[in-house]
């Protein structure tokens, strides 16, 4: 076992992300273990090329933000690191935990699995854009009343999923809510309270 070499790779194998996140560093990292002989001396490939930043306009929570981003920048990192909208959280960066869930044209999207440059002309809603001024959205109200969080880190994603879950009408029963809220992990273990909150919010919205 002498002299193994490495290209440091964040991921140990192909993941769901590799399918969706073509181009840029992540795809390269994911491919590495598949390369014969450990790709230590592989050509630098696309990473050596200078990367042009694209000037794009992102419409987030009703406001238009002009931002220069490289094509490889995810929507999540654009929101957090460029637009300083840090309510949206990064839990895994590969679409497994749901902490980064935002709404794009009303649909739930894991913002770590999509690139910012793909989101021009879309209406993006983050947790910062859910309340109407001082008035919390019924989903937010219900999360507070039902104690549907503890540490609060998954909460922005849970709330975005819950807003969509209510809009989609997937709130007919506790089981239906459990199923449609299962893309968002909560490690503190607030699931029953989250289900209660989503039920309450659905009733409130329909009133």
């Amino acid at each position: 076992m002498s002299e193994p070499s490495q290209h440091a790779a964040e991921d140990s194998g192909p993941g769901r992300r590799s399918v969706l996140k073509a181009g840029g560093v992540s795809a390269a990292a994911v491919m590495m273990p598949l390369a014969p002989g450990g790709a230590a001396h592989a050509a630098p490939g696309p990473s050596a090329a200078p990367r042009a930043a694209a000037d794009i306009a992102l419409r987030v929570n009703g406001e238009t933000h002009r931002v220069a981003v490289e094509a490889r920048v995810t929507l999540l990192d654009a929101l957090r690191e460029r637009l300083r909208l840090t309510g949206t959280k990064k839990g895994c960066d590969r679409g497994e935990c749901g902490a980064c869930t935002v709404l794009v044209d009303g649909r739930r999207v894991k913002s770590c699995l999509t690139l910012a440059v793909m989101q021009e002309d879309r209406e993006i809603t983050t947790v910062e854009g859910v309340a109407r001024g001082e008035r919390l959205h019924p989903v937010q109200e219900a999360f507070v009343a039902r104690d549907a969080f503890q540490c609060g880190f998954c909460t922005p994603g849970q709330i975005m999923s819950a807003v969509a879950c209510v809009e989609e009408g997937h709130t007919g029963s506790r089981d239906e809510i459990r199923e449609w809220m299962s893309g968002n992990l909560c490690r503190c273990g607030c699931y029953p309270n989250i289900v209660d909150a989503v039920r309450d919010a659905a009733r409130e919205v329909r009133r």
Partner: peptide
Amino acid sequence: TLEQAQEAATLVEVRYDSER
């Protein structure tokens, strides 16, 4: 930037004298 750091991390070449 984060992307630059992640990219550069893939370019560090390491060799080891490894034991079982």
